[in-house]
Amino acid sequence: MISKLMTGIEQAIRKEFPETTYKIFTEATERVSPCFFILCISQSRNAKLGDRFILNTSFEVQYFSGSGNNECWGVAEKLRELLDVISLEEDLMQGRNGNYRVDNGVLHFVMDYNIPMMRQQDAVDFMEEVTVYGKTREAGK
Score class of each variant (00 low, 15 high):
Trp73His: 14
Gly105Val: 13
Phe126Cys: 14
Asp91Ser: 04
Arg96Phe: 00
Met118Ala: 03
Arg52Val: 03
Met1Trp: 02
Tyr100Met: 10
Leu83Ser: 10
Gln62Asn: 15
Tyr22Leu: 08
Gly95Arg: 15
Gly68Pro: 02
Pro34Met: 03
Phe17Asn: 08
Lys23Ser: 08
Arg137Gln: 11
Arg31Glu: 08
Asp125Gln: 14
Phe59Thr: 10
Ala123Val: 02
Leu82Asn: 04
Pro116Met: 04
Asp122Val: 02
Arg45Asp: 05
Gln121Thr: 03
Thr20His: 07
Glu89Gly: 04
Arg80Thr: 07
Met127Gln: 13
Leu92Ile: 02
Met6Ile: 12
Phe59Trp: 07
Asp112Ile: 02
Asn104Ile: 10
Gln11Ser: 05
Ala12Asn: 08
Leu55Trp: 00
Phe126His: 13
Asn69Ser: 14
Arg80Pro: 12
Asp91Ile: 00
Thr21Leu: 05
Gly95Lys: 06
Leu5Phe: 07
Leu88Ile: 05
Val132Ala: 15
Val110Tyr: 03
Leu92Trp: 01
Asn70Val: 04
Asp103Tyr: 02
Glu60Val: 09
Glu77Met: 10
Leu83Asp: 03
Leu5Asp: 04
Ile24His: 03
Gly140Ile: 06
Glu89Gln: 08
Phe53His: 08
Thr57Lys: 10
Asp51His: 08
Gly66Arg: 15
Phe37Met: 05
Gln121Ile: 01
Asp122Pro: 14
Ser65Phe: 11
Ser87Met: 02
Ala76Tyr: 09
Met93Phe: 00
Glu60Thr: 13
Thr29Trp: 02
Tyr113Thr: 00
Gln43Asp: 10
Asp84Glu: 09
Thr57Ala: 07
Gly98Trp: 02
Gln11Leu: 11
Glu71Val: 00
Lys4Ser: 01
Gly140Asp: 09
Val102Ser: 08
Phe36Gly: 09
Ile54Gly: 06
Asp125Leu: 14
Glu90Gln: 05
Tyr100Ser: 10
Ser65Thr: 05
Gly8Ser: 08
Gly74Lys: 14
Arg96Glu: 05
Lys15Met: 15
Arg96Met: 01
Leu83Pro: 11
Ile13Met: 10
Glu10Pro: 04
Phe17Cys: 06
Asp51Phe: 02
Glu16Lys: 13
Val61Gln: 03
Lys135Arg: 13
Ala47Arg: 09
Gly8Tyr: 03
His108Trp: 05
Asp51Lys: 06
Ile86Gly: 08
Leu88Ala: 07
Tyr113Gln: 01
Ser42Cys: 12
Arg45Leu: 02
Asp103Met: 07
Asp91Gly: 06
Met111Asp: 00
Leu107Lys: 04
Glu90Phe: 00
Leu107Phe: 12
